[in-house]
């Protein structure tokens, strides 16, 4: 290694080499930083409201107090983490089929959004819910009751899905 060149003496001027003026400059910089507004969000009191593009917990869209899902099973088929389980059954409604059992294992879900992308009925979408804490593995398996969310709360995401899909 050639240490004859690019040594401290060549790179720095005299005033830089005695450090003190530069140290004072650095201290001035940090002092100015102290007066700037803070970036911290006081989390439990001050929550973040995600945009429509946010992929949170996948949920089933509830329209007229019944799920849109027709239990085609595409979401379960496309899910790379095998997190979704659907069992179909028949119903008197116009859609003829409905899921008698719909479970998402939140321990397996990777929030990729494939289920939402593949769904022909816009029945499963990613919500804005990012506070996903459960205290046992069983509580992580969400059944239909936990998954159903009224359509009014999902407008942002549905709009986003329609525009960009």
């Amino acid at each position: 290694m050639n240490i004859e060149h690019n040594i401290e003496r060549e790179r720095m001027t005299f005033w830089e080499r005695i450090y003190l003026p530069e140290i004072a400059r650095g201290l001035g910089l940090t002092f100015r930083r102290m007066l700037r507004p803070k970036m911290t969000r006081q989390y439990p009191e001050e929550r973040w409201e995600p945009l429509g593009s946010y992929r949170g917990r996948p949920v089933l869209v509830e329209e007229d107090s019944v799920e849109r899902c027709v239990a085609c099973g595409l979401c379960a088929r496309v899910c790379p983490a095998l997190a979704i389980e659907v069992q179909a059954s028949e119903t008197e409604l116009d859609k003829e089929r409905f899921p008698i059992k719909f479970e998402i294992n939140m321990l397996r879900c990777i929030y990729c959004g494939f289920c939402e992308e593949v769904c022909p009925e816009e029945a499963i979408v990613m919500s804005k819910d990012y506070e996903l804490v459960f205290t046992s593995p069983e509580a992580g398996i969400m059944d239909k009751a936990k998954l159903l969310v009224p359509i009014a709360q999902l407008q942002d995401r549905l709009e986003f899905v329609r525009r960009y899909r």
């Binding site: 930083r33 102290m34 700037r36 803070k38 911290t40």
Partner: peptide, 10 residues
């Protein structure tokens, strides 16, 4: 506290 204030934290 001072380190936080310098780094734009609380």
């Amino acid at each position: 506290k001072i380190s936080a204030v310098i780094q734009d934290r609380i």
